[in-house]
Amino acid sequence: MPEWNAGQYLKFEEQRTRPAIDLLAHVPLSNPKRCIDLGCGPGNSTELLVKRYPNAEIMGLDSSFAMLAEARQRLPGLIFEKDDIATWSPSESFDLIFANAALQWVPDHAMLLPRLVSALNPGGCLAIQVPDNQQEPTHVLMRDVAARGPWAGRLAGAATAREAIGSFGEYYTRLRQAGCSVDLWRTTYVHCLNGAGAIVEWVKGTGLRPFLDPLDEAEQKEFLALYEAEIAHAYPQQFDGKVLLRFPRLFLIARRDDTA
């Protein structure tokens, strides 16, 4: 996948950081020694770890040069490494592995989650939040526009760029079998945005990327015009001109058995 655009992502920094705040609030660790933020992006979630655990060794990991550059500028005293979560193999274990809105881009959660648990110290926590919005109009419509345009052949694989999010039961089973206690929940955020165009700007930084990246500039413009028209129908304006973007997210915290 082509390079991420940190500036586009940060247009909605406050809204994107809120789930990370909620996830971290449920982490039951008081004094972890080593923490890592997987898929740290521009460092907004890493900064939360620094504030909560000022005495911990904290690092970030991401596959994007642009995101890492932004994170290093934001938190110059931390170590940020470029790596792919799908193949990441740490030489040392961690007390907290934090992954906010990152693992939806990593395939095969059935294999991934036990591997991440194995990188935890006994008593350590794996804290994950992933968007669970593939059946929301934002994502249904991007697939529809992709399928009916002249670009349909080139975008055939875009719909599967993200890993399918499993059920509570699937994640519970995988993590319990990996030797963890498990806390699971789902929250639907409602973001009040300035019209259909703002929704398009939001998803341009994340979910739309696999659909737009294979297109040239003129095709991207045409795709976005068709998509925004559909979004305007799906998200009607409120009395004050705002639109309400529903955004479901799945949260899980897995704590490794302290006898492991």
Rank of each mutant, 00 (worst) to 15 (best):
P150W: 04
V50I: 11
D144C: 04
L29P: 06
R16A: 05
M111T: 15
I36A: 02
D216I: 03
Q237I: 09
E81A: 12
G169P: 07
F168M: 03
R154W: 09
Y227K: 04
D240L: 00
I21W: 11
P28C: 02
N44H: 12
H26V: 08
R143I: 00
P2S: 12
F65P: 09
H191L: 12
P76F: 01
A71F: 03
L250F: 14
H139L: 13
A66D: 15
H26C: 11
G241H: 06
L48M: 08
L250K: 08
A71D: 04
T173H: 12
R256N: 06
N55V: 11
I79P: 10
K242G: 03
E219A: 13
N31I: 01
N121R: 15
A25C: 11
A156W: 10
Q220I: 00
C125D: 08
P214I: 02
L120E: 08
S89A: 13
L226H: 14
T138Y: 08
W4P: 05
A229F: 04
R176W: 10
A56G: 09
L24M: 05
T187I: 12
Q15M: 12
A69W: 09
I58Y: 08
F211S: 02
K242P: 00
N133L: 07
F247I: 04
A218I: 10
A110W: 15
E14F: 11
R162N: 11
C180G: 00
M67Q: 15
I21L: 13
D37P: 02
A152W: 09
Q134L: 15
D257I: 08
S181F: 10
R16M: 08
